[in-house]
C-alpha cells in the first residue's frame, strides 16, 4: 500500500443505519480507501447491519475480524460487544476491555489507535448520535495531522455526537450526509491500486 493511500474511520450511533446507507450507497465501485466503521449496537446484535449495508454497497462490506489484514476497497464494521483497534502492521485487534464512554465498541478506541498508525493519511468522520463518544478520538486524528469531517448537526438525526465532536476539534469539513461520500472520493485520491486489492 503506498503512503498516499487514505484510510477512513467513521463513528456513528443513534440513527446510524440510515446515515451509513446514504454514504455507502454514494461510493463508486473503484473507491480506494479501506473504510472502518464503529456503529454503536446492542451487545447481542447479530450481523444484520453488515448484510444490510453489503446489499446496498458497490464495495464489499464485512465484519472486522481479529488479526485480519486491513485491505483497500473494503468496508469493515466493528463486531458488537468488542472494541476494534488498528495495529501497527495494519491488522485489526479486538478487545473486551470495559466500556469506554458507555460503549463497546467505542469510537474513541478505534480512532485513537488508527490515528497512531495512519497519522496524516487518516480521515475521521463523526455522524449522528446521542452521546459524546468519538470526540476525543477525532481530536487525536486532527492532532496527528489527519483530516476530520463532522456531519452538520442541523442535518443529523441526533445532533449530540456531532456537537460534542465540534466542541473539541475544529473540523476540516462540516457537511450534510449527501455531500460526504462525494467529498471522500475526491480527497482520497484516485482509484484502487492493484496491489491493495486482496
Amino acid at each position: 500500500m503506498n503512503s498516499q493511500q487514505k484510510t477512513v474511520v467513521i463513528g456513528v450511533s443513534a440513527g446510524g443505519m440510515e446515515a451509513l446507507t446514504v454514504i455507502v450507497k454514494s461510493l463508486p465501485k473503484d473507491f480506494a480507501p479501506a473504510m472502518i466503521i464503529v456503529q454503536h449496537q446492542k451487545e447481542d446484535s447479530d450481523n444484520f447491519l453488515v448484510h444490510y449495508l453489503n446489499e446496498r454497497s458497490k464495495i464489499p462490506v464485512v465484519e472486522a475480524e481479529d488479526k485480519q489484514k486491513i485491505g483497500a476497497g473494503r468496508i469493515y464494521i466493528a463486531p458488537p460487544g468488542y472494541h476494534l483497534l488498528v495495529e501497527g502492521d495494519e491488522q485489526f485487534s479486538l478487545s473486551i476491555d470495559a466500556k469506554v464512554s458507555f460503549a463497546r465498541p467505542s469510537i474513541d478506541v478505534l480512532f485513537e489507535s488508527a490515528a497512531d498508525v495512519y497519522a496524516e493519511n487518516l480521515i475521521g468522520i463523526i455522524l449522528t448520535g446521542a452521546n459524546s463518544d468519538g470526540a476525543r478520538g477525532l481530536k487525536k486524528i486532527k492532532d496527528a495531522g489527519g483530516t476530520v469531517i463532522v456531519q452538520d448537526p442541523e442535518t443529523a438525526h441526533t445532533k449530540a455526537m456531532p456537537l460534542a465532536a465540534l466542541a473539541l476539534t475544529k473540523a476540516d469539513y462540516i457537511l450534510p450526509l449527501e455531500k460526504i461520500g462525494p467529498l471522500l472520493y475526491n480527497i482520497s485520491g484516485g482509484t484502487k491500486d492493484s496491489k491493495g486489492i486482496t
Binding site: 478487545s95 489507535s113 497512531d116
Partner: peptide, 9 residues
Amino acid sequence: YARASLKRR
C-alpha cells in the same frame, strides 16, 4: 501482546 490495546493499558 497485540500492541494497540497494550499501549492503551
